[in-house]
Design a protein around this nucleic acid. Structure first.
Length: 610
DNA sequence: CTAGGGTTAG
């Protein structure tokens, strides 16, 4: 039985991922004329795929004189496993047109998985329809992948219908459904389902915790990881840890992140690439860019995500030159940048107003790397052009790009119009912005300021009037302040704090010194039509100021004061924080809803761009 | 011989 023997040999090759022996065997089969045995060739196909030799597998697949369902399922699965779901879907149509084969249950599972990873819900629903009218309509494995696909597309309700039709549910079905609810923020349903899972293994916990992190619920995710540890669930692989590292990043709580890092080290997973990647990102998001660099430099292997994480981190913290330096090193190391890398790089340019460099990078992305620019790339480029005063060029691009600009893009260009006093263009941009978000007070504020500075008083007062008719429901602003291991939260206008008197006293003292240095409160961003003094009083009680004062009063001189704010820092507070950093000679780092600000020696890393 | 669940960068 030579064929059986060869199959056994191939199995060993797959097990040991042995490329050389696989190729030797392949040559052997050709010499002996064994390639006509489809069973053997299918196995060979699978071994090549498992050895990550997708190109070789594809060539073999193309050369096969005959292909059956197994050949197709194997090659489609190989594309999925190489993270090429688009190729899975584009390779599928010839299955019928060339080989007259209809999909079987294995092929359906691969197609559904590909749609899930792409979030291609339309295509996914088509496949679902075809599956239902196929002879395999009751297959539980395909149903599990459908549950997962709907979960990934954010439609857990559709997934639930499929889930309920699965006769014998196994862990794959349960985890897909739990994850679907959790990542959509449907916490109650995910917890209810989790409580009913027969076996709560690491997979199930990870599905729940990672889903909550993805829905933005980092606090509950931490609660669950504590519970999971108490239940002595053994963390035999690190996937759940990357979720929890990500949760610390979302909260921007450095001390918490350090503790999670400690756990990662204790469990021995620091050398795992995607865990280190998550740590790099976490430290960057917690504004400790030095720690991010430290983790990055200790990595023995780095992939495109590692490089991109540190590049994006540098860019967000205003270190444009550092980002470019890292990019050059990345290319020298033979790592191909992807679309995310370019988002970081163009973002870095817009931070420091490097227009030519930004244009070059955009061009290089398309021409050297064949990456189709996304809306996000255009947004970064438009930001850069607008802020540097190339308003006509920006408008030309916005009118010719293949995307509808979103609201932040129009808003960025509108403020560029204010900066460069282009009232005419501002009116056009404001029209677009208001059609997308008619109730937005800041648009009217900006518009009225632009009119006022162009001497168009009538228009200005009209905008102000529009503003007053709006029912403004503003989210209350709050700031967390961190120094060392201490933290404290402040709401805007908070007046019941035990250290109220000291905070007020310090802010007053600082106010006197700031005014001596020429500071004049900028009340143009205040919504309500109130007296000027009242406006100044409101500015005085913005949460970030209270937080800074508290930090200054309580921390050891020389320590960095870190603040995380839920809203964007207003223009006046930005000016104030710059001054304070100079007066008290302290570094203040603020992460607001939009970006990072490192205030030091009277300057900010954002280059006054926010 | 082929399929399904949990992970990192915007």
């Amino acid at each position: 039985m030579p064929i059986l023997h060869h199959l056994h040999q191939l199995k060993n090759c797959a097990k040991h991922r042995s490329i050389v022996s696989t190729k030797q065997l392949h040559g052997h089969f050709i010499k002996l004329g064994l390639t006509k045995f489809i069973h053997l060739t299918n196995t060979l196909l699978n071994v090549y795929a498992k050895c990550n030799l997708l190109e070789v597998a594809l060539q073999l697949f193309d050369e096969m004189p005959q292909r059956d369902h197994v050949s197709w399922a194997t090659i489609l699965t190989a594309q999925n496993q190489s993270n090429l779901p688009k190729k899975t879907l584009s390779m599928f149509p010839p299955m019928f047109s060339f080989d007259r084969l209809l999909p079987d249950d294995f092929v359906f599972a691969s197609l559904v998985k590909a749609c899930g990873s792409l979030g291609a819900i339309k295509h996914g629903k088509q496949v679902h329809g075809n599956f239902l009218v196929s002879p395999f309509f009751d297959d539980d494995v395909v149903k599990s992948s459908l549950v997962d696909m709907y979960a990934k597309c954010g439609l857990p309700g559709n997934g639930r219908l499929v889930f309920d039709s699965i006769k014998s549910k196994n862990m794959a079905s349960w985890t897909a459904m739990i994850h679907g609810y959790a990542r959509k923020g449907r916490k109650e349903e995910s917890l209810e389902l989790f409580s009913r899972v027969p076996v709560k293994d690491l997979f199930a916990w990870t599905a729940l915790i990672s889903g909550l992190v993805q829905s933005g619920d980092a606090v509950d995710a931490f609660g669950l990881i504590v519970e999971m540890r108490r239940k002595r669930i053994s963390i035999i692989d690190p996937l759940v840890l990357s979720s929890i590292v990500g949760a610390s990043a979302n909260l921007a709580m450095l001390e918490l992140g350090k503790q999670v890092h400690g756990l990662v080290i204790r469990l021995g997973y620091e050398s795992c690439v995607f865990i280190s990647n998550a740590l790099v990102d976490m430290y960057a998001k917690c504004s400790d860019i030095l720690a991010a660099r430290d983790v990055f430099s200790r990595m023995s292997r780095r992939d495109v995500v590692s490089w991109t994480s540190i590049i994006v981190g540098a860019a967000q913290h205003g270190q444009a030159e550092e980002a470019f330096y890292l990019y050059d090193k990345m290319v020298l190391n033979g790592i191909k940048p992807n679309e995310v890398t370019f988002v970081g790089l163009i973002y870095a340019c817009s931070h420091v107003g490097l227009v030519n460099r930004g244009r070059q990078l955009f061009k290089s992305m398309v021409e050297d790397y064949g990456i189709h620019p996304s809306l996000q790339h255009y947004t970064c480029l438009l930001d850069l052009l607008g802020r540097s005063g190339y308003l006509e060029e920006a408008e030309a691009i916005i009118n010719s790009m293949p995307f509808k600009p979103d609201e932040p893009t129009w808003a960025a260009l509108l403020s560029a119009c204010k900066q460069y006093g282009n009232a005419k263009m501002a009116i056009r941009f404001a029209d677009h912005l208001l059609s997308l978000k008619p109730e937005e007070p800041s648009t009217y504020i900006l518009l009225s300021n632009i009119y006022a500075s162009s001497g168009l008083w009538e228009h200005a007062s009209k905008s102000r009037h529009m503003l007053e008719t709006l029912e403004v429901r503003k989210e209350p602003g709050y700031s967390y302040v961190y120094f060392g291991k201490e933290s404290q939260m402040f709401y805007a206008g908070e007046s019941s704090h035990p250290m109220k008197e000291e905070i007020f006293g310090l802010l007053n003292e600082l106010d006197v010194e700031m005014r001596r240095r020429g500071y004049v409160p900028d009340t143009s961003g205040i919504l309500h039509n109130t007296e000027h003094q009242e406006k100044e009083r409101q500015l005085f009680w913005h949460s970030e100021r209270l937080a800074v004062a508290y930090g200054l009063l309580n921390s050891v001189p020389g320590t960095v004061i870190r603040i995380v704010k839920n809203l964007r820092v207003c223009g006046d507070c930005h000016a104030v924080l710059k001054l304070i950093s100079d007066i008290v000679r302290r570094e203040i780092i603020v992460r607001d809803a939009k970006r990072y600000h490192h205030f030091k020696d009277g300057k900010c890393s954002c280059n006054d761009f926010w």
